Simulated scan of single mutants.
Amino acid sequence: MNWPQLSALLNAFAHTEPGRMIATLASISIAAILWRISKKRARLSSSSMLDVEHRRGNLVLAKNLIIGATLLAVGSIWATKIAGAALSLAAVAGAVLIVSKEFLSNVLGSAMLAISRPYRVGDFIEMGEATGRVLDTDLLVTTIAETLEGHQLTGRTAVLPNSLLLTHPVKNLTATGAYVINLLSIAVIPSEDLLALEKTLLKAAREVCFPWLADADHHLKQLESRDLVNLPSAEPRVLMELNHAHEATLVLRYSCRPNDRVKVEQAILRAFLQQRCVVAGRQHRDARALAEAA
């Protein structure tokens, strides 16, 4: 068999259903390989030459180009079939839209969930006015165990239509996985020694969080390298907010496992109060000693 005959045979096979399927699978496989190569190159890029945000921007651009080229290739492969089915699909879509707009919105929301994966089972999320831990997802709804502040379970469940993904922002409160960053706000009187209170709160947080600080910091650094994002350190930090003349706020940033947030928060508060009482008692004794000496 000479080359013209082989070329004609391959061309005829490419226009058959098996030929189109093989060509489609080949296009998707090539796209997946290119995407993995792009991610690997972005991770291995020297941080001294390109910062994290720049590398992430290049990676997003590469992803969009790969997706666009793959869609163009697949569309070209199935062009004749698409043209023939377009009218029928339009009629079916119109009928579905008329019969059940909400059903179609939920299906589109499920498609968005499958593609973008904003959350998974076990994550704590906030969507609309509901906050809770994801228990189940299906074609139409997401079921969550409702929680209050601090991830405290209420014992109730909430069923959220997947159409909310199309109209409401979703906050994944445990997006960093094994260890999460939490904030604890403590209101104090501005006339108090804020620097001393800051040291006391930091000491309490470090004592409570010390057993897992190294693991949490390693985990967050791995996420930075893998996902090309800037994440805070696992080391406890305190920020001061002078809201007005009668109130100040110490905001503690600390790390812990998602399921231990309430326990760790309470442990930090108790350690802070105990150490504050110790300091206050020492100051009171020193003041009394000075008064007696005078």
Rank of each mutant, 00 (worst) to 15 (best):
A79N: 08
G84F: 06
V159G: 01
N182W: 06
N230G: 10
H168K: 15
V60W: 11
Q283C: 04
A12N: 12
A32S: 12
I30C: 06
L195F: 05
R285I: 13
R20Y: 00
L97T: 12
R36H: 08
L173D: 02
R288K: 09
A111W: 15
E17M: 14
A69W: 10
L194E: 07
L223S: 05
S163Q: 14
M112L: 10
R36I: 10
W3H: 11
L165Q: 04
L184Y: 02
V121L: 03
L97R: 07
E292H: 14
I66N: 02
R270W: 07
A196D: 06
S38Y: 08
L108F: 07
L59G: 01
L242P: 05
L228C: 07
C256K: 01
R237F: 10
A289G: 07
S110Y: 05
A79K: 11
I144E: 03
L228P: 00
S48T: 06
L87W: 07
V52H: 01
V188R: 07
A14N: 04
T131L: 10
L184G: 03
L71N: 09
G57R: 12
A287V: 04
D136N: 10
A91W: 01
E265V: 01
H54N: 12
Y254R: 07
R55K: 08
L61C: 05
A69F: 13
L34M: 09
L104D: 08
V264I: 15
M21E: 06
L202F: 01
L202D: 00
R285D: 15
S48Y: 05
A12G: 11
I186Q: 05
P232W: 00
L231W: 02
G122V: 05
N172M: 05
D136C: 06
P4N: 08
R120H: 09
K171Q: 15
K263Q: 11
R133I: 11
R276P: 00
S163L: 00
L197Q: 06
S116V: 13
S76R: 07
V238G: 04
P118Q: 09
R288C: 04
A271K: 12
D286R: 15
N58E: 13
S48L: 11
G132R: 01
L65Y: 09
I181L: 09
E17D: 12
T143D: 13
L153C: 00
L164M: 10
L87P: 11
L113P: 00
G75N: 08
I189R: 15
R56I: 01
L104R: 09
M112Y: 12
L25H: 00
V278A: 14
V99K: 11
S76Y: 14
N58R: 14
P4M: 04
F210G: 10
W78Y: 09
M49R: 11
F103I: 02
I189L: 14
I144F: 05
E198Y: 02
A26H: 02
R133S: 08
A93Q: 07
R55S: 04
A111E: 04
M127R: 06
S38R: 06
M1E: 08
E129V: 13
D260N: 08
G122Y: 03
A267W: 01
R276I: 03
R55I: 00
P232S: 04
E129I: 12
Y179A: 02
V141M: 02
I268K: 00
G84T: 10
